[in-house]
């Protein structure tokens, strides 16, 4: 008659303790991910290369990277919020198409994305030639950097935000409406606060992607020091002349990314 509880306790004892091959697999992946980071830090350890951070080329790349990546993250949020909500809450014709198209930048090689951007907004591009006639030139400007970054980073924000909105129970929106809140107020006072951990995660992912963007920027914006040369491009240029500079920029990027991840994690845990 007390079979049931005993049965449950057996189940509890059988919780996986970790099969050896699971650990082996994990160890390989961990080595692959951690070793290069350690190597990078070791290379930077004699502090000497860090002095290269005062190099004007490094400073301008840093400034450009920070401003463009923040701008493109803002654009991702501004344009991504309505799209994410639309995908999470509404059924409409062509939803699958929109969904797939939005994921495309994640699967596309960034260099190809850069070529595509050129064909659209370049001086001879389908939109670009009309802009050119108006005197507006996008390629090889900071605006092109922002566009390339936004193109590559937006799906990361939209994915995360959509999942966040989907997790908000519909009845909470309904309840808010019966309490006199219109769609705008429901969105900002119910949906956004409740989805905020996912939104924040999306912001960080998008920002990290924008910060690391290389291929599309290279093709669409070029590698002009002081104008379109972001940190990743500066690393590549530096590799050809001065390894120390390349290492110091890399460490800087690593710290930026790591700081963002830790900061977000702290914020989210505090929230809960």
């Amino acid at each position: 008659m007390d079979l049931a509880p005993r049965h449950i306790s057996i189940e509890a004892d059988e919780r996986p303790e970790g099969k050896p091959w699971l650990w082996v697999g994990s160890a390989f992946l961990l080595t692959l991910c951690v070793l290069p980071v350690v190597a990078l830090l070791l290379a930077a350890f004699p502090v000497r290369p860090l002095s290269k951070l005062r190099d004007p080329m490094v400073l301008s790349a840093l400034r450009l990277s920070v401003t463009t990546s923040l701008t493109s993250t803002l654009l991702c949020v501004a344009m991504g919020l309505p799209v994410a909500y639309l995908l999470a809450r509404h059924r409409f014709a062509g939803k699958v198409v929109l969904d797939t198209v939005l994921d495309l930048p994640m699967a596309l090689p960034p260099v190809v994305a850069g070529v595509a951007l050129l064909l659209a907004f370049g001086r001879a591009g389908i939109v670009g030639k009309h802009l050119d006639a108006l005197g507006v030139r996008i390629p090889f400007t900071a605006a092109a950097v922002v566009m390339a970054q936004t193109f590559m980073a937006a799906p990361f924000f939209v994915r995360s935000a959509r999942a966040g909105f989907e997790a908000v129970p519909l009845r909470l929106e309904h309840a808010a409406m019966t309490l006199g809140a219109g769609r705008w107020r429901v969105f900002w006072t119910v949906c956004v606060p409740l989805a905020s951990p996912a939104l924040l995660a999306g912001v960080v992912l998008a920002w990290a992607r924008a910060l690391g963007e290389f291929g599309a920027t290279m093709m669409f914006a070029g590698n002009l020091p002081g104008v379109t040369q972001t940190l990743p491009l500066a690393v590549m240029s530096a590799m050809e002349t001065n390894l120390d500079t390349a290492v110091s920029i890399s460490v800087l990027s690593l710290l930026l990314a790591f700081g963002a991840l830790v900061g977000t994690r702290l914020l989210v845990t505090q929230w809960r």
Binding site: R171, L172, L179
Partner: peptide
């Protein structure tokens, strides 16, 4: 008329309090 203009209050089966 939109729900927020109807002046109809509703209590739902499952809790619909705003958790935040």
């Amino acid at each position: 008329v939109a729900p927020w203009r109807r002046r109809v209050g509703m209590v739902f089966q499952e809790s619909a309090l705003f958790p935040h």
